[in-house]
Design a binder for these strands. Structure first.
Length: 378
RNA sequence: GUCCCCAUCGACUAGCGGUUAGGUCACGGGCCUUUCAAGCCCGUAGCACGGGUUCAAAUCCCGUUGGGGACACCA
């Protein structure tokens, strides 16, 4: 059922190259399958002289190989399309297909569930199971996952190993949920499902047969959904490198402020940067469109004076005082609020202003206000 | 080149002979609102093509096209 092959890697490559020129499939040509006694003797002598080491090939019989795939149904292959493949390399190490069959049999594997790219390995492995007298397991071939250009996911797409998704701030539950939905769905197309739910709902009959394109946008959305409902403590742990050594209560407040407006934990780093660093840089455009408008400086001065006297510096107190200020100056609240936001966060967008003020603390708020009005020296 | 798998909105998909072809992401519009999100409401958008079978086809069959996979002394 198997035989020694004396061909060298170089010879095979050369012959493969010749064959490809003639449009013949690149498989093994079967040269060593039917060597005469004399030819074999010559080759064996060469081995003894250590000029060559043989490999062992499986002698593929002429037959049809059929099996039932749990996802794709009945599949049939003609062994003519399979050339005699190597089972033991010349260095004595078994190849994947051979090792795989033996290992799985020894481990009494009943169901082989793997990627679609293995589908053409299956007939080879079945032949080996039969030759070895082993029980053939059930096979299920899952569809592949592609990048946006329909080529297999790779570094080119910014695809990373699973660990780096965690580093980027994706929750494991979201990751599992999203990947599960690539090629699988429930009858009602339910989206958010826990691992247990996924397991109980799974069936091979509902697995898609075509490959799926990995969509980062949807993963991002799903991760955001998980962040919205995740326990505070978990989020705190995940964000500890970003939030640093600040008091726990303060950190929790930050988390709550951002949990509905970030898609990954690492978003916190840039979104909340003005909370995390002493010095801020005012966005150029924000400065132009908000701070440089006429009258803004006066409003800021008035705001500064108002805020100076607020004690305690709470969300409610600051809001109340600034709304009153707007009223007494007879301006729209946003003409007061927007400039303060820019002065204090450096950006035109932020979480609700009064949450920001109270969390930033009076000292920092006044300092940044001063800076916006008078410049750094003041 | 040969063999194999696959085919519904831009993406993930529901559908398994009779549906106004449904949901989710994304996108567009609106509401809410101190900005941004979130939330809520509405909308744009799809059965690759050609033949059959049938009273009736997204659904079954056959081609075509398109996409993918595999053909190693890699796993």
């Amino acid at each position: 059922k198997a035989y020694y092959c004396f061909c060298t890697k170089e010879e095979l490559e050369a012959r493969r190259y010749e064959a490809s020129k003639l449009g013949i499939p690149p498989g093994y040509d079967g040269k060593c399958r039917s060597l005469t006694k004399e030819e074999r003797a010559i080759e064996e002598r060469a081995i003894l002289e250590k000029k060559r080491k043989p490999s062992i090939r499986f002698s593929v019989p002429d037959c049809k190989i059929a099996f039932s795939d749990l996802i794709r149904g009945e599949l049939e292959f003609d062994s003519k399309t399979i050339s005699d493949f190597i089972i033991i390399r010349s260095d004595g190490v078994p190849t994947y297909n051979f090792a795989c069959v033996i290992d799985d049999s020894l481990m009494e594997i009943t169901d082989v569930i793997r990627g679609e790219d293995h589908i053409s390995n299956t007939p080879k492995q079945i032949l080996l199971y039969q030759a070895l007298g082993f029980k053939i397991p059930q096979f299920a071939h899952l569809p592949l996952i592609f990048g946006p250009d329909k080529t297999p996911l790779s570094k080119r797409h910014g695809a990373m190993d699973v660990l780096s998704y965690r580093e980027r701030g994706f929750l494991p539950e979201a990751m599992i949920n999203y990947i599960s939905l690539l090629g699988f769905s429930t009858e009602d197309s339910k989206q958010i499902m826990s691992k247990d739910e996924l397991i109980s709902l799974f069936s091979f009959a509902r697995v898609q047969r075509g490959g799926a394109i990995f969509d980062l946008d949807k993963l991002l959305w799903m991760n955001a959904e998980y962040i919205k409902v995740e326990k505070k403590e978990t989020l705190l742990t995940l964000a500890k490198d970003i939030l640093g050594e600040k008091p726990k209560e303060w950190q929790e407040a930050i988390i709550e402020l951002y949990r509905e407006r970030i898609k990954t934990i690492s978003d916190l780093k840039k979104e909340a940067s003005f909370f995390l660093q002493e010095e801020i840089e005012v966005d150029k455009e924000a400065e132009e469109t908000i701070l440089k408008k006429p009258g803004v400086i006066d409003n800021l001065k008035a705001s500064l004076d108002t805020l100076k006297n607020i004690e305690p510096f709470t969300k409610e107190k600051t809001e109340e005082a600034l709304r009153e200020l707007a009223k007494s100056l007879n301006v729209k609240t946003k003409d007061i609020f927007h400039p303060i936001r820019v002065a204090v966060t450096g950006k035109t967008v932020s979480p609700p202003l009064f949450d920001v003020l109270s969390l930033l603390g009076k000292e920092l708020v006044l300092k940044r206000l001063n800076f916006a009005i008078f410049g750094r020296k003041a």
